[in-house]
């Protein structure tokens, strides 16, 4: 049992990890086929995971209803919505008033998708605009030098990325320098500089660190040093 739970997964992780790494350097047909096979496996496993997810979802909500936990009424809504969407997608006939069945354009499923799912998703996303406004209002204070820099950069970015920024820039007087004409306030130039210089520099630093860490964690997993993800402590 301990072999199945501990050693075997580590062996599989080691062999698969090393194999896929070496494969990257070999351009031959064998290596292409190997990769194809691997990718197919991944797709199949992901497909099966959906079943796992559905079971977990139903189990969780059934339990909630049975135990009458707070807010269990919402679980009825979840299960009902799930059942309706599934039925609409799989039913082998046209629902009254709909020209198509299953998931085709003009079917009930498609109608539900377009007129309930899409608006609800868009609503969730647009809540972001409100939250950003309130978070900015609360958190952006010129408490220190760094905070002030952050504040100024944020303001330039916000104004510079919308047409009103262009309007303001074009309204300011110009001056000549090195034979070029510049605006005193030029949001496009400033946002460009912010994005291309400080932003890109910081991002690069973080990215390099992240990718190195990813190499390190890959090595730890391939060599079986990091095993927490298998559910075994140390």
């Amino acid at each position: 049992m301990i072999f199945l739970k501990r050693q075997l997964p580590i062996i599989i992780a080691f062999v698969a990890g090393i194999m896929m790494w070496i494969r990257y350097y070999i351009p031959s047909e064998v290596s292409t086929n190997l990769e194809d096979g691997y990718l197919e496996w991944v797709r199949i496993i992901v497909g099966f995971a959906a079943i796992l997810g559905i079971l977990s979802l139903l189990q969780h909500h059934m339990l909630k209803i049975r135990m009458k936990r707070p807010g269990f009424a919402f679980s009825y809504v979840t299960i009902a919505a799930f059942a309706l969407m599934m039925f609409a997608g799989f039913a082998p006939f046209n629902f009254p008033g709909f020209a198509e069945k299953n998931m085709e354009t003009g079917s009930l499923f498609n109608w539900l998708y377009e007129f309930t799912f899409i608006p609800m998703q868009a609503t969730m996303f647009s809540v972001l605009a409100f939250f950003i406004a309130s978070a900015a209002f609360r958190a952006f204070r010129a408490r220190s030098m760094e905070a002030t820099l952050l504040l100024v950069a944020a303001i330039i970015m916000m104004v510079g990325r919308v047409p009103i920024g262009d309007l303001i820039s074009n309204a300011t007087p110009t001056f000549m320098m090195f034979g070029n004409e510049y605006h005193f306030i030029d949001f496009e130039e400033w946002t460009g500089w912010l994005l291309n210089v400080p932003n890109a520099a910081a991002k690069r630093g973080i990215l390099l660190g992240v990718y190195l860490s990813q190499i390190a964690i890959s090595i730890r997993i391939i060599f079986g040093i990091e095993r927490t993800y298998m559910g075994g402590g140390d």
Binding site: A133, V159, V162, I164
Partner: peptide
């Protein structure tokens, strides 16, 4: 959509300045 975005950006900028 750009008009709406301009307006909201301007509002956020002004409100940050006011709050400060």
């Amino acid at each position: 959509g750009m008009d709406a975005q301009s307006a909201v950006h301007l509002f956020i900028v002004l409100s940050i300045i006011l709050a400060n």
